[in-house]
Amino acid sequence: MGDSYGGGYSRTSYNAGGGDDAGGFVYGGSQGGSQSAHYLTLPTSSRRATATTPCAPVTIKQVIEAEQAYPDAPFRIDGLEVTQVTFVGMVRAISPQTTNVTFRLDDGTGIIEVKQWLDADKQDDTSKQAFALDSYVRVWGRLKSFNNKRHVGAHVIKPVADYNEVQYHLLEATYCHLFFTKGAPAAATVAVYNWLSNSEGGNEGVHANIISQAMKISIGEVLKCGEELTSAGVTYTTVDDETFAILDY
């Protein structure tokens, strides 16, 4: 694959095997070498340790709930060790400090602080870039914990120029989560998500019967897809357990 999204967001594939000591995140696993693994890479300007630094596409809720066996132990999300993460969120607060700028970002699943350290030696330091409140940004950074409080140390923060990137990221994060918790998601799950994204159900959502008729798939399949998407935190039920709406950012 070699898909490229807005804002410098890229997904790269390579044959599974090797690279386990990079401390990164891969999905797609190898079954007899027949599948490919995929990872998200940091923008070229931010790669400091290796030529390609893997990043896990996550939601803020996943970051907050990442497991640690003991203090300073590696973080684990969906059972895999994760160091670098990338996510999209709305800027809720900005707190400039002498050595860093702290952002409070909200992606609809949670709120977390993101710290971007300033480099006094660089006159054109991109970390000094201003972002408007309530605008969307993408973060690439390292998951950290200080005094039992999670935060992300950002390598790069870039404005989201196209709202489609928010949806692309959420779908990517959902795919990875479902892959590692329930196996590869069925194509129907992705199709239902895309259909809901383009529907006009609003906050009231769309009933499974309507989705079934519109997509020409069984009501049982729709309910299964809705359950998977809701458990992943990207949809929610509204007036009843069979009416689904996309989580509003």
Rank of each mutant, 00 (worst) to 15 (best):
K128Y: 11
K128H: 14
K128T: 09
Q129C: 11
A130F: 11
F131C: 06
A132N: 07
A132R: 08
L133F: 08
L133W: 11
L133M: 13
L133P: 07
L133T: 12
D134Q: 14
S135T: 13
S135M: 09
Y136F: 15
V137N: 00
R138Y: 03
R138S: 05
R138M: 15
R138F: 05
V139E: 01
V139R: 00
G141Q: 04
G141N: 08
R142C: 06
L143R: 04
S145R: 13
N147Y: 06
N147G: 07
N148W: 05
K149H: 06
H151N: 08
H151S: 02
H151K: 06
V152H: 00
V152I: 14
V152P: 02
V152F: 04
V152C: 01
G153I: 03
G153Q: 07
A154P: 00
A154M: 02
V156Q: 05
V156I: 10
V156F: 01
I157N: 01
I157E: 01
I157H: 03
K158W: 11
P159S: 15
V160D: 11
D162P: 05
D162C: 08
D162I: 09
D162S: 12
Y163D: 13
Y163L: 15
Y163P: 12
N164S: 14
N164M: 14
N164T: 15
E165N: 15
Q167F: 15
Y168M: 08
Y168N: 14
H169E: 12
H169W: 13
H169D: 10
L171D: 10
L171Q: 14
L171T: 12
L171S: 12
A173M: 03
T174P: 01
Y175W: 13
Y175G: 04
Y175I: 10
C176A: 10
H177P: 04
H177T: 09
H177A: 02
H177F: 09
H177M: 08
L178S: 04
L178K: 03
F179S: 04
T181Q: 04
T181A: 02
T181N: 00
K182F: 11
K182D: 05
K182I: 00
K182Q: 12
G183H: 04
G183V: 03
G183K: 08
G183A: 08
A186Y: 09
A187T: 03
A188K: 02
V190K: 10
V192A: 01
V192C: 01
Y193W: 12
Y193I: 03
N194V: 13
N194L: 13
L196N: 06
L196P: 03
S197H: 11
S197K: 09
N198W: 08
N198V: 05
N198F: 11
E200A: 11
E200L: 09
E200C: 07
E200S: 13
G202R: 12
G202Y: 10
N203D: 14
N203W: 06
E204W: 04
E204H: 10
G205Y: 03
G205H: 00
V206K: 06
V206M: 09
H207S: 04
H207D: 04
N209F: 08
N209D: 14
N209K: 13
I211P: 00
Q213D: 09
Q213C: 06
A214P: 05
I217Q: 05
I217A: 03
I219M: 05
G220M: 00
G220V: 02
E221R: 10
L223P: 01
L223S: 08
L223G: 05
C225G: 03
